[in-house]
Design a protein around this nucleic acid. Structure first.
Length: 149
DNA sequence: CCCTGATTCGC
DNA sequence: GCGAATCAGG
């Protein structure tokens, strides 16, 4: 795939919009990797914006002023949880929560099972197979959905 | 382990 | 020019 004007345009657009390279890559689809995006972005004038990884030689010595005994975490936090569409990653659970269009519509966001779009919980929910409507006498008394491995 | 962008270098 | 591999940091 070559960098057509359209693609370059979209790249510039999304990049300016602040999306990460990997997100842009997925957006462009067609086997475009984040490396390709970064490479191109870097190559054409617009490169390096807020890079989370700065070779950083100038650190701020002043910072942790307070702290000391640490205010304590207060609340426990689990990974994932409530991600908007734009924040979804390939390895995040894409189980929708709420109705699309609602102000609080979001996605599960917990780590998804490798190869699946959802986390373990939601895989179980999603891949729960329906027994044949007729003739399920053979399975009477049994719940034999194919287990998700 | 998940992610981020930066650089290198063979094609 | 391109991007996978690699690097380097959060």
């Amino acid at each position: 795939m070559a960098w057509t004007d359209e693609r370059v345009e979209k790249l510039r657009e999304l990049w300016d919009k602040g999306l990460s390279a990997s997100q842009i890559a997925k957006e462009l689809g067609e086997g475009v990797t984040r490396n390709a995006v970064i490479g191109k972005a870097h190559r054409m004038g617009l490169a390096s914006r807020p890079s989370p990884v700065k070779t950083d030689a100038a650190k701020k010595p002043a910072k942790k002023a307070a702290a000391e005994k640490a205010p304590a975490p207060a609340k426990k936090k689990a990974a994932g949880g409530k991600v908007s569409l734009l924040e979804l990653t390939e390895r995040m659970c894409k189980w929708p929560i709420g109705h699309p269009g609602d102000p609080d519509f979001h996605f599960c966001g917990k780590p998804s099972r490798p190869g699946f779009p959802y986390c373990t919980e939601h895989c179980a929910e999603a891949y729960q197979v329906q027994q044949p409507r007729r003739d399920r006498r053979a399975n009477r008394g049994r719940i034999s959905a194919t287990p998700v491995r």
